[in-house]
Simulated scan of single mutants.
Amino acid sequence: MFSAQLTCSECQWRTVCGEEQVAKRLRKLGLLRRAAEPPVEMLQELLISHGSQLKCDQCEAVGLAVSDPAVDEFDEAGDWQQAILCEVCRKPISEERLEFMPKATRCVKCQSAEDRGEVEEEFDYCPKCGSLMELRTSRGGGITRYKLFCTGSPSCRV
Score class of each variant (00 low, 15 high):
155 S>V: 12
63 G>H: 09
88 V>I: 11
70 A>T: 09
85 L>S: 12
137 T>S: 15
131 S>K: 13
28 K>V: 07
148 L>K: 15
128 K>S: 14
17 C>S: 04
107 C>D: 02
126 C>T: 02
2 F>R: 06
134 E>I: 09
56 C>I: 01
82 Q>P: 09
36 A>K: 15
22 V>G: 00
50 H>L: 00
83 A>M: 10
145 R>V: 06
124 D>H: 13
146 Y>N: 11
9 S>P: 08
140 G>Q: 11
39 P>Q: 08
145 R>C: 13
69 P>F: 02
144 T>I: 05
19 E>Y: 00
35 A>C: 09
148 L>G: 06
51 G>N: 00
145 R>F: 04
95 E>G: 10
78 G>M: 06
66 V>K: 00
27 R>I: 02
12 Q>D: 15
32 L>A: 04
86 C>F: 03
67 S>R: 10
61 A>M: 09
51 G>I: 00
63 G>M: 08
123 F>P: 02
88 V>H: 13
61 A>R: 12
80 W>P: 15
109 K>V: 09
34 R>C: 11
86 C>M: 05
126 C>I: 02
43 L>S: 00
54 L>Y: 01
90 R>K: 08
84 I>Q: 14
15 T>I: 12
93 I>G: 01
102 P>D: 07
68 D>A: 05
125 Y>P: 01
92 P>I: 03
60 E>L: 09
142 G>D: 10
86 C>P: 02
36 A>W: 07
152 G>I: 04
139 R>E: 14
158 V>Q: 14
110 C>I: 04
96 E>S: 13
83 A>G: 14
89 C>V: 05
125 Y>N: 02
6 L>I: 04
16 V>C: 04
87 E>W: 04
58 Q>T: 10
51 G>P: 00
62 V>W: 05
144 T>V: 06
71 V>A: 15
87 E>Y: 05
103 K>V: 07
154 P>Y: 06
129 C>V: 05
